[in-house]
Design a protein around this nucleic acid. Structure first.
Lengths: 122, 122
DNA sequence: GTAGTGACTTGGAAAGTCCAACCTATTGGC
DNA sequence: GCCAATAGGTTGGACTTTCCAAGTCACTAC
């Protein structure tokens, strides 16, 4: 179990308690684009290990931010998708994307690419 | 040194690389209220250990988000304050505060207290 | 000179993360 | 039925980060 728990009486701290761990917000960002399978999440998040991905998905599910849904035939797969509460994190991800976007990168993207980022990550 | 570094080409990942570590955003939240001394930060962030606080402040300083400034007499203290770039994190902290605020807490605050949170954390 | 801040540093234990390998089911040929 | 592939994980061990308590060093007040 994650030993986090900063300070229960601060709104920011409570938010970080829920999604402040490594990879959590990046998983949310992926899911903001729609439901995804475990394997696809693993492929789209370079560097995340399978155990951490499984752990984070369970945590997010336990917090009511993500739901596990099994697709029937012919797809026959398990997908993860955001709950309404999880989707409310969109402004947080957008704010981070905006802050980390244009002014930080070394390999400066073109305006076209940057536009792509904003529309896909936000 | 922190071995983070998710994926350099994603804006959200780059943002989290800078401020995604434990306590970083809470320190920023404190400094959004104005310059603070080390000891006051330590007192206002219940649970942070002194070594982590010192480490995070150096990291944030190294990233150009926080500046260390020595006050002369009679105060004769060292204060930390946000750079303009660091202050640009305000929307991120606001989004987190808004998300973590009204709908999550168990010891539901009164509206007056909640108002206090928004104005002081945002 | 001794007591008390302020601003850290250090050492060791605990917790979290990474990596590679393994496991169980289901599907799809042949 | 048999073999390989894919999906969705679990497990063990090394490595890294965080926690906690204690100690350091500079300065001021008395």
């Amino acid at each position: 179990m994650p030993r986090r728990s900063y300070d229960q009486y601060c709104a920011v701290a409570r938010a970080l308690d829920a999604v402040g761990e490594r990879w959590s917000l990046l998983i949310v960002r992926e899911l903001l684009g729609g439901p995804r399978r475990y394997t696809d999440l693993h492929a789209d998040l370079p560097g995340v290990s399978t155990d951490i991905l499984a752990t984070r998905l369970k945590q997010l599910e336990g917090e009511g931010l993500v739901e596990r849904r099994r697709l029937e035939r012919p797809a026959n797969a398990t997908v993860y998708e955001l709950t309404p509460r999880g989707a409310e994190l969109r402004p947080v991800v957008e704010a981070l994307a905006h802050w980390g976007g244009p002014d930080l990168g070394e390999p400066r993207p073109t305006d076209a690419v940057r536009e792509h980022w904003y529309t896909t990550t936000a």
